[in-house]
Design a protein around this nucleic acid. Structure first.
Lengths: 151, 151
DNA sequence: ACAATAACATAGCAAAGGCTATATTTCCAA
DNA sequence: TTGGAAATATAGCCTTTGCTATGTTATTGT
């Protein structure tokens, strides 16, 4: 260990453990991002056209179809969706619930950004990344600060 | 292709290309997150104790030391830092500039969250993930909405 | 001065999330 | 009803980011 015990000089650094927790949580959130994105998108596609197909998911996410196929297997294994070979994909109860929560959070974040003066295009772009890092407490704060007309 | 041209029913779905752009950008941001986190942390450690050592970086990020060593090689290759074997790591001009920008953005996001009523702990946690998805436009909006006393 | 310890380097592995290429199945239209 | 196109499945590869285990170099206390 290095021997600087002069803690008066400590500038903006928080305690190591505290900072570690923040980084760990950010990494954790990153791991669940994809699941949330997929489930939310699948719910939207089903609500919109009655079905969620791999090609449509792939197009909207901007990835290749085999990438989607692989991820759907994971979602299936984790109990969010059900899929039959060469058929569409359906959300389970768990999947529907996750989709609902994700969708709602997404909406709140996007509306909130608009309400503080961000353009709709930028709000949409930024919300896609931000939503996954917004805790319930922060979400509540955003809800409070969003005028009704934006919701 | 499926043949539903009844666009009146389209619920909340934006155009496929538009959505694709959002997802692509979110993925892009994710790739630069780690670089920004490292450079920002290195700058803080240097400002705080005069040096940035692998063990300290590893402890604060909550990862193992070889993980840090590998990333430092990448940062070195990309011109953000300079390192001499068994010696500390130093920021290049590019690195310092990136650190400055990242640090400022981080601060603004964290202060902004506090200013809308989020607790400091949650603000710190959420800011760590959110900062990387905040575009210049959104950052400006956040700055406008943060009272002076929070900055 | 030199052994013990702490820090760093390196090798090798794994999982996640991308990709292309290609095989298989389904579906629609002639 | 059947042949071609579209959708899905599968194989195999790559990169990133993490890990453990272990070797190598510096530093430090006696």
């Amino acid at each position: 260990m290095n021997e600087k015990h002069d803690q008066a000089i400590e500038s903006s650094l928080v305690a190591p453990d505290t900072q570690m927790e923040s980084f760990r949580q950010a990494r954790n959130n990153r791991r669940s991002e994809l699941v949330e994105d997929y489930v939310e998108l699948i719910a939207d596609l089903i609500a919109d056209g009655g079905e969620a197909r791999q090609v449509d998911i792939a197009q909207r996410l901007g990835v290749a179809q085999p990438t989607v196929a692989k991820m759907l297997k994971r979602l299936s294994a984790e109990g969010y969706i059900q899929q039959r070979p060469y058929r569409g994909v359906f959300l389970t109860g768990t999947g529907k619930e996750l989709a609902r929560v994700s969708r709602e959070r997404h909406q709140i974040v996007e509306s909130f950004l608009c309400s503080i003066g961000v353009s709709v295009e930028t709000a949409r772009m930024n919300a896609e990344g931000i939503e996954h890092h917004v805790s319930p407490e922060t979400l509540e704060a955003m809800k409070r600060f969003t005028p009704k007309r934006h919701l």
